[in-house]
Design a binder for these strands. Sequence first.
DNA 1: AATGAATGAGTCTTCATTCAT
DNA 2: AATGAATGAAGACTCATTCAT
Lengths: 193, 193, 193, 193
Amino acid sequence: MKSNKPKYNQIIEAAVKVIAENGYHGSQVSKIAKAAGVADGTIYLYFKNKEDILVTVFKEKMGQFIEEIALATSMQENAEKKLFTLIDLHIRQLEKNHDLAIVTQLELRQSNYTLRRQINAVLKPYLTMIDVIIGEGIETKQFREDINVPLMRQMIFGTLDEIVTNWVMKEHKYNLVDQVPQIHALLIHGLRS
Amino acid sequence: MKSNKPKYNQIIEAAVKVIAENGYHGSQVSKIAKAAGVADGTIYLYFKNKEDILVTVFKEKMGQFIEEIALATSMQENAEKKLFTLIDLHIRQLEKNHDLAIVTQLELRQSNYTLRRQINAVLKPYLTMIDVIIGEGIETKQFREDINVPLMRQMIFGTLDEIVTNWVMKEHKYNLVDQVPQIHALLIHGLRS
Amino acid sequence: MKSNKPKYNQIIEAAVKVIAENGYHGSQVSKIAKAAGVADGTIYLYFKNKEDILVTVFKEKMGQFIEEIALATSMQENAEKKLFTLIDLHIRQLEKNHDLAIVTQLELRQSNYTLRRQINAVLKPYLTMIDVIIGEGIETKQFREDINVPLMRQMIFGTLDEIVTNWVMKEHKYNLVDQVPQIHALLIHGLRS
Amino acid sequence: MKSNKPKYNQIIEAAVKVIAENGYHGSQVSKIAKAAGVADGTIYLYFKNKEDILVTVFKEKMGQFIEEIALATSMQENAEKKLFTLIDLHIRQLEKNHDLAIVTQLELRQSNYTLRRQINAVLKPYLTMIDVIIGEGIETKQFREDINVPLMRQMIFGTLDEIVTNWVMKEHKYNLVDQVPQIHALLIHGLRS
DNA sequence: AATGAATGAGTCTTCATTCAT
DNA sequence: AATGAATGAAGACTCATTCAT
């Protein structure tokens, strides 16, 4: 696929790099074009408009992100382990890819409302995946019966998102993967002693 | 106090309203001025520039927000109850003020890096307050000894933030305060049955 | 006179200072008001508008300038000596007063066409004075009969103006008065050996 | 050459015309663009900013102006004739081109300090050319040995500049070229009978 | 398919001037 | 006479998008 549409991929990779380096508002179409080694006009042969580049960046990158997590969790035998795997890969993947983390945690959020809705749509399957894991945990009695699934999913996603965002804003100065067991424990056991 | 600087307050209130209605990028200075019933130039007698309006809106509103929570939690006798109060008021205050919720959860995040850092600075005391409550819980053995305080704080704040943001993006279609006890329970007990 | 209209004079002196220090375009009415120790509005009790301040500055200062030259030349016995005195005082007065020189040679020329015409009107008597001296020289046969008076006046004024402007632009780094005899000689004898 | 950069030249020609007609402060970028028959934004493909248009106008026009004088004087056999040619062409070229004369003598001087310095840099070779002619005259004993070259140059340039400026301010109501022999005579012989 | 020159809509900010006190 | 808070008009510049080549 990559070899079929080389410019398309060039542009997406350039966009991630340019946005991570220059910020959302400093990433003009002409700058992305230059980084991709194509003419400004060429961008519009592959993308409807600037917003479309950004949405596509998110779709492609998050698509891989989600797929990898989906695959890995499916190979775990129970909900608790699946949750651990999800946390681990969520954090591991973003920690591995600084540029992408900057783009997803900071820059893309500076977009307008329309783009935000599209980004949420891309995230939908991921959130559903979390819902399914929680549901499975409840069914198998690993998790409490009275758990409100959407609420618990917001807790899980909100926690992970906040943790990664903090790490990005602190300029990746500390190690994230090491905290995975603690995060998992907090989500499973809560605060109570 | 309000009567001393009427224009100042007019402008801040207008800014919240205009941003909530038109979004961050649709909120021209002239639109805010018009909504405040002052001339464009008057804005610049009270604010250094457009960004300064936004920072100030956040400072003033979050200042009250945080203060109210600080006061209420201080009157609770133990960490668990303090946490409940914090969750309750965090959600209650934003649910009560739709416009403010839109501004803090969605619009202000579309700002540039500089503004983001200033917003974080304003939030700092709130985050510290959470840290202190967790610390108190650990000392009094209400919470587990091995809890990583910053991590737990990110979990609490991330959860609340995600919950309110979801509610705003779903256009406030459901009741939030009702979920407070469940949120509290999840944070205290976690998923484990 | 000064004691009768203290604010009036305060404003004029402040204007010269502020313009010399901040340049024409950096000299807002409010800055002049502040330097003069009066309120912005007070300016408009004494001057019709901003342009009026500038014209008045020029009128007052150039009035003194011209008067002093008129007095001194009138005490010289012949045209050649009068010309020497005129050159000497023209240069001496501006060299003595750096701020005024900056204002007259550089800053006030950045004004618009209307102001320029008014400035020219103020200069008129000075130019006429030069004309009269040349005429006297011709009558007394000190100067050639076939001299075109306006042309010669333009030569004299143009020369002096250019010399002072160059000196101001070179930031007053050299001594001007020392050159007076040479200037006089050049105007009297020309280039020819 | 013109056909290679048509827009560039269109903009420069339009700028001279617009500034001559509307004055420096009345020449908005949009007005120049309209007169040049291009979009506002096109200006910025060829010029860094508004000031850059003005500096370029001066550079291009004065470049030609100076070159023509350099060529013509070089073909004269001695310093006195070279000086005559310089005076003649200085005045002839500006008299021929009313718009340019207005721009160089009046409007461009309303510019700020930065622009003024750049304009002076453009004039530098012209002033040097005058210096060289004077030096040559001294060497060949046409001119007096004791002449202060910079001073004499300021006298020549100041005289020409003042004469042209007066003519522009009098709205070109009289003939300038006719005065060339008189100007030359005054510079060569001075006032003395 | 690819180019890149050209377009032109859109906005924050300054500052001379006014006028109620 | 004096104040100074309030006014609001005015303009340079950017950048997403188009289209002739």
